[in-house]
Amino acid sequence: MVFYVIRRILQAIPVLIGTTFLIYFLVFAMPGNPVQALFGDKTPNPALLAELEKQYHLNEPFIVQYLYYLRDVVTGNFGVSFSGQSVNDVLARTFPVTARLALMAVVIEMVVGVTIGLVAGLRKGKLFDLSSLVISLLFLSVPIFVICFIGQFFLGFKLGWFRTTVGADASIPNLILPAIVLASSLVAINIRLTRGSVIETLNNDFVRTAYSKGLSRRRVIPVHVLRNSLIPVTTQLGADFGILLVGATVTEGIFNVPGVGNTLYQAIIRGERPTVVSFVTVMVLLYLVVNIIIDLIYAVLDPRIRYVK
């Protein structure tokens, strides 16, 4: 297990270097003064310009610039945002909100998705299964911002069940609607995956053997079917996290949730590109870390992985 953890972390290093290099290359390999270019047709504050040029070591050769950048990323120094605020300060303020929202969405995803997926898988071909398939396909196909507007319009505006925008008070009750909206497409993915996984597990010989041992259905379903089905569902959580990050950006933007996503959203629509680059970098790092954690959970769930070597 220790070997597995070390190996998994070592594997993440080249990916970290690769991804940061890729982002840096995309932004700074442009001819001319990239910092100036980042501002496009906007006129930057000269002090900020100087600050950014210093941050990105523009007078050094490209590869040295990148190494400075990598050092900053690894040591958690993400520079300043467009408005001159330290990115770290902004993160300290916004991250807890986004973490709360994301956690709520993941909980909704797992509880609703796994429950519906399990029941659908056990009742394959029945009405419940077919309708859950249709609904999940629909949610899979509607873009997240459309779901946001539908939720905002019907649940918030027409029915008045929730506040249409969150504003400064990002308490859990206020975050329920954004969390539901954010979770919707993940729930759809989760239902399909759980259902498929349950059906496949049910076909395994060991399930029949479990029944033949005299175990009751009440024991076989959770212990031998659901437990095994959760393995692929958990691995998928890692890939889902990318969808969650993009979804959080859009959802927080539309519902005006004061989180990391909203900061990125505002930066994108205002064209504040240095901020965009910093926050995308932060999100990619987050994505890498979450995927490492999920791989470790995977190892806990599946002894075959844990005990390899």
């Binding site: 080249p14 990916v15 690769g18 991804t19 890729l22 982002i23 995309l26 932004v27 442009m30 270019a37 980042l38 990318g242 969808i243 990050l245 993009v246 950006t249 994108i268 064209g271 590109r273 965009v276 680059v277 995308v280 999100m283 990619v284 994505y287 890498l288 995927n291």
Partner: peptide, 21 residues
């Protein structure tokens, strides 16, 4: 491994950066 690197950046976020540039 190259694919892993590209895969590790959610593609919409990557597209946002590219489109910004």
């Amino acid at each position: 491994r190259l694919g892993d690197i590209f895969f590790s950046i959610p593609y919409i976020l990557a597209a946002v950066v590219i489109m910004s540039v």
